[in-house]
Design a protein around this nucleic acid. Structure first.
Lengths: 229, 229
DNA sequence: GACGAATTCAAACAGATGTTTTAATCATTT
DNA sequence: AAATGATTAAAACATCTGTTTGAATTCGTC
């Protein structure tokens, strides 16, 4: 018989904490619930992690680092055309958010990150920013290239948010989406399909932005715009 | 002197509750904090509202009904072209989410609704659905018209989410956006600008979807698709 | 101005919460 | 097997929680 070793107490707590924290949020979750789910004594959270707060911090760190290592930001050839890089970025982003085991992958620890996005706790603050800012910069590079040299920072930002907003909505509003539509954003086939859709939709949107930047036909609404950066 | 009557205790509690609940969430907020901020005795929450839970419920009801009455869903002429209706819908949605006093308008009660979106509490459950489902249906009508007769339900859904995701990201990820960019989504001028951007971006994206629906040139990935609905 | 109802207040209550303590158990080394 | 250190367990602790109580105060009305 293979020496199927049981998981360590530490890991059992971490796993249970993921579900309880994800389901109820930091404050509403109780260490007693977590320990009951993990099948361990109440004192062991403080023995292994020092405090409830530390457990949450460590859980968040694991969740983010593991997910970003499974679905890295730079999965594409940097010399590939921007269209291809956008597809790769969108696919990685959707996978990171939606895949089973991803940031909002399965019910339970799912909404932990959605909550942190809407309302970053001081605890995960740096962490969220450490991972999200670089990711945003990668997307900014792709979008800037697609928008062309006329694009100002503000334009790049709007393009970025239009792309990322489409992706993150499936994660953030997942409870609503599964209720309003009969649709499972975690299904692998759907993720592929969504990546195609978001990429195509965004390429058209960005092209439209670029066209307007290069041919500001009607509505010269803002005459004080300086292109030569 | 004008009889500048002070606000009633009830209203003072409601106001303070908006800030505390919005800032900390239902569970983390304490009635003692709320009462301290309102400058009233601890017992008055239960006297005027029956319970903390009821206070939260009533607050949520007020917030949603007031905001939807300020920024209604049907602000447009139903006979107007779909492009115009989309612009009106997007503008109303962004205003509802971002305007000062709107659902995520100012710090405090702001993130209450963002939280409920990511993780609807049983308390506001029906409420959220009562307001969001009809809104989604209005958008579905607009998107369906823009996508043309070839669009299936799944296509409409994807189009919807691409539009609404762009809007809601400014609200849901507001803490991140204000940190990553120097941008205030609540500024009236910015809301107008964003409405233009999202509308234009989406029209291009939807047009691209339609073109592919009507001319499925490459990648006949799904041969089992029946158009004549 | 007095009566009665509505409102406000200080205090207390019962239960839950994160954490600590102290002793028991387990694993590893000698 | 004894000793040592790490881990687990049961119980208690101090604090905080929403809520209730009962008296004080205010307000409208006769």
């Amino acid at each position: 018989m293979g020496q199927m070793e049981e998981k360590s107490t530490r890991d059992r707590i971490l796993e249970a904490a993921g579900e309880i924290f994800g389901l109820q949020g930091f404050k509403a979750a109780t260490v007693r619930d977590i320990c009951r789910k993990a099948g361990v004594n109440v004192a062991l959270v403080n023995y292994h992690f020092g405090s409830k707060e530390n457990l949450y911090r460590e859980l968040g760190r694991d969740l983010v680092t593991q997910t970003f290592s499974r679905f890295p930001v730079d999965v594409f050839d940097p010399d590939a055309p921007a269209e291809v890089r956008l597809r790769a970025f969108v696919h990685a982003t959707l996978s990171r958010l939606l895949s089973p085991g991803g940031l909002t992958g399965y019910p339970g620890r799912g909404q932990l990150m959605a909550r942190e996005l809407a309302d970053p706790s001081p605890i995960l603050d740096n962490l969220v920013e450490d991972f999200i800012r670089p990711t945003a910069q990668v997307l900014a590079g792709i979008v800037a290239e697609l928008l062309g040299p006329e694009a100002r920072d503000r334009d790049v930002m709007k393009g970025q948010i239009s792309v990322i907003g489409q992706c993150s909505h499936y994660a953030v509003a997942r409870p609503l989406i599964t209720r309003l539509f009969a649709f499972d954003p975690s299904d692998q086939q759907n993720i592929e399909d969504l990546a195609d859709h978001v990429t195509r939709f965004s390429l058209a949107g960005l092209a439209s932005m670029r066209q307007r930047l290069e041919h500001p036909t009607e509505k010269p609404s803002d005459p004080s715009r300086n292109k030569g950066d």
